[in-house]
Simulated assay, not measured.
Amino acid sequence: MLEMILFYKLSFITSTVSGGVLSVIGKHFIWRNKFLELFTLCQFAIIGNLLGNLILPDLELPLIPLVTSVVFFIFGKFLFDFFKVNAKERSTRMICIYLVLASSQYLIISLFPNLETHLSNGLFGSMVTATHLENWIIISIFLIISVGLFFLNSSITKNSLEISFFQRRKKHIKDEYFLLIPVVIGVFGLGLIYTLSFLSLGAVILGTSFKNQKTNNIALAVINIIASIGGLLLSLYFENLSTTPLQVVLLALICLITKVFNEKLLK
């Protein structure tokens, strides 16, 4: 087992840094009521990933689909801001846009059946099958984001709380684009299900279960990391179990157990 862990050491590092960072930034999208918009934008990234794999497919360069994923993600964000799609009737509009984008993905697959594997990876991902280069890209970017979060946490939290409680919305919020970087990288390398689950599950299930925000942040980060590493470890031990679904289910279970245990302590 130790040999297997050493062989997949980059995957374990990826699970650690991604789980921790996603737990921190997830609450900001929830506070800003941007999660449905984020879910829809990720569909742009998946389309960009699919089209990127059509460019020089024989070379199998992960940087090309990564760049096209980022470009399409930013393009979607630009369209939403320009046409103010996220201003009124957000839920209805976002769902309609999602349906069109999801249908477009399957149209691309019908035209280019060889991309079906890439669509599956875009949805579920897998740390086990990620290449060394993909893992290093994810690790490097998430580490840079974590350093940025350390220095910018106060200002980002202030903006999020102002938006959440006072509905103060600035036309150009730079920190929002900063928070979007690990999301599009996560969708590219880790899959939509993993990225959005580790962004939201802890914050939604646990909510304000802890006494203060600092304790809440630490608890969410620790739980995310444990679930991510634990799910990866179990999927390596039980080869028939898929990594990402196992990580997500484990995360939900740990959050529910923590919530119940914490509520009993508070009584």
Rank of each mutant, 00 (worst) to 15 (best):
I95T: 13
E89I: 09
V85L: 15
T129G: 01
N121I: 00
L101D: 12
A87L: 05
L143H: 03
N86R: 05
V128Q: 14
S160N: 06
P182S: 08
N121T: 01
L107K: 03
T129P: 01
P113D: 13
I141G: 13
F80D: 03
L149R: 06
L201F: 10
F82A: 15
L99S: 14
Q105R: 03
Y177Q: 05
T131M: 12
V187M: 02
V100Q: 15
G191R: 04
G76D: 11
I145L: 15
Y98P: 00
N114K: 12
S155W: 12
G202I: 01
Q105I: 03
I108T: 11
V184E: 15
L201D: 07
T208F: 13
N153V: 00
T195D: 15
F82H: 12
D175Y: 15
E162Q: 08
I181P: 02
E89C: 13
D81N: 11
A130D: 00
G125S: 03
I95Y: 14
E89R: 13
S103Q: 07
F210E: 06
I163L: 15
I205K: 10
N135G: 04
S126D: 04
V187R: 03
S146W: 12
I139P: 05
F210N: 09
L107S: 06
I97S: 14
S120I: 03
Q105G: 02
K171M: 09
N86W: 02
S110G: 02
S91T: 00
L196N: 12
I185E: 02
E176G: 10
R168A: 04
R168T: 00
F78E: 10
F82Q: 13
F165R: 13
S104R: 11
F83N: 06
L206R: 13
P182F: 08
C96T: 00
R93L: 10
V147H: 08
F198A: 09
V184Y: 14
A102D: 09
N135F: 01
I95S: 13
M94Y: 07
F80A: 09
G189A: 11
N86Q: 09
E116S: 14
I145K: 14
Y177R: 04
K77F: 12
N121H: 00
W136I: 08
N86Y: 02
Q105L: 02
R168V: 00
V147I: 01
G189C: 09
F150G: 02
M94G: 08
I95P: 06
K170Q: 09
G148N: 13
F78T: 07
I138L: 14
I141E: 09
K77G: 13
G186F: 03
L101R: 11
L79I: 05
L201P: 09
S120F: 11
N121K: 05
S104A: 13
L101G: 11
L99C: 13
I156H: 12
L143Y: 07
N121A: 07
T129R: 03
K170H: 08
G189R: 00
